[in-house]
Amino acid sequence: MVGERIRAGLADYRTLAAAKLRSDWQYRAGFVAMFASTVLVTAMDFAGIAVVFTKTPELGGWTFRDVAFLYGVAGVSFGLADFLVGSVEQISPRVRTGVFDMLLIRPVNALVNLTASEFTFRRVGKVAQALVVLVVATAVADIEWTLGRILMLPLTIVSGTVIACATWVITASIAFFTVETQEIANTFTYGGDLATSYPLHIFESWLRVLVTYIVPLVFVSYLPALYILDLETPLALPSWLRFASPLAAVAMVVVARAVWRAGLRHYRSTGS
């Protein structure tokens, strides 16, 4: 029953996202230019990191190769999440204008309908760029590959992507309750992407608390990277947390589901 619903949701997502891609492709010049700018934006982020390392050999005790690995893991996770569900942020104008109603009169899960209908292909540019960095960084980093580490890498990417997806859905759900502060979502999504690209211990303690306990973004890259790169952390974190990313992912999904449903309920009880 649940499996069937997931299969139906995925099939609908594919259908609707493909339609959106075909629609966007009608405006080829804009499509190509926006795609190029997406790739450049993400390349620029990494160029920023590279530039910093022209002035210093390490950052918080981590070398360029270590930070590049961290960037790759965070970038692939956040990039995939942005690619798959990032368009959920389009909820804000839809709720404001009442067009969200149109999503509910289709026999499709409302979240699937929204994210797929606003699917933005160019976001794959971020994934591709981060993947290149990750592959190169993994190749050049001196990682002592054990079975555990080999398994940990894909597990980290999957967990990180799930955590990032949940972050997008949770922050977008704000739009159901108030239309005014929706952009704050970007602080957690794109800001989260930026913050998780650097070693957590260089940040102020309140920022560390925020990305560890309030939104558990530290599970996306930093904690698993400690294990894979075999690095020490100056922070007093229990060592089992390095393996807890899948748990954090499950917890985030539970929260995201509850928040989204509460939002939908609120929308349906207040109207547009």
Binding site: T56, T178, E183, I184, N186, I202, L207
Partner: peptide
């Protein structure tokens, strides 16, 4: 656009702290 302004301030502030921490860490070495 007061709501958007507030949200923008939050975003700018957070990004400011992240970037500041990164560069300060570089200064700590260099």
């Amino acid at each position: 656009y007061r709501g958007a302004t507030f949200a923008g301030v939050v975003t700018n502030t957070m990004f400011g702290f992240v970037y500041a921490a990164v560069f300060v860490a570089a200064h700590a070495v260099a």
